[in-house]
Amino acid sequence: MKAFLKYREVWLLAAIVVLIGLISMRFPGFANPANLRQVFNDTSILMILALGQMVVILTRSIDLSMASNLCFTGMVVAMLNAAHPAIPIPLLIVVALLVGLVLGAINGLLVWRLNIPSIVVTLGTLTIYRGATFVISGGAWVNADQMSPDFIGLQRAAFLGIPVLSWIAILVIALFFLLMTRTALGRSIYAIGVNPTASIYAGIDVGRTKFIVFCISGMAAGLCGYLWISRYVIASVEVANGYELNIIAACVIGGISIAGGIGSVGGAVLGALFLGIISNALPVINISPFWQMAISGSAIILAVVLNARGERRQGRIILKKAEAA
């Protein structure tokens, strides 16, 4: 599996390099390191969300509520910050992680305990969490001038010339990499996606593992709740509306199979970067940003077509000569 996946990631990486090359032909400054750092920074949030979604999709589930979770959590931390500017930001980040975790755990419990398909559960919580944002905020916005300078400034501060937001993304990528390749939980997540029945016989608690992946995607969404609000400095009910599908798009482009069991951290990151590059490139090469949606749509369709070619199973290959050929 490793060699095959590596092949796919290398392939995606090559596509990204070609893309950057093409953009550079129109706008030579695009490929310079400072700009690429900027693109990475702009894509950080999507990468974190895509990684959270990835672990869910690997177990043959889906989390449609991530964007609503992000919106709710973002509103909670924004309101906390507006009301009590003295609360240190690291503590607010912990709050964001916890709120996200709780919302993810609700999804996970419904999937685990009641065995409701995840697409139904998260379709429900998608509307509930966004509605709840309205309830706690009374429909009001939290604006930039209500947020403390630290709240806004933290992710913009540079460390070794790279913004903190990017460092957070790098840290999250590293954590997910460890999770998926170095822990028993990571193995169990793959195993469930490959063969749920066999997983039960192998002593894996499928329900509990699904619960955990929803907690993980919830925490990722919660963290991004803070990051999103402090980046775009406005908290409202409309934050990240419809973004759940962008997250899934990043996963699909990254080669994560919606049927579960196939996908990697590198793929999710590259898939998100691909979308990030397109949205960054359009303005600089003078294409209306209104083109972005159609382009990413086409990219998704192309990615599925190409992925399906790789996944297609072959017959038994009984004939000796065919085997040799």
Partner: peptide, 14 residues
């Protein structure tokens, strides 16, 4: 599910 997420972006994108 994936195809129509793609065409969803494509159709509205147009």
């Amino acid at each position: 599910i994936v195809v129509t997420i793609g065409t969803m972006s494509l159709f509205r994108g147009i």
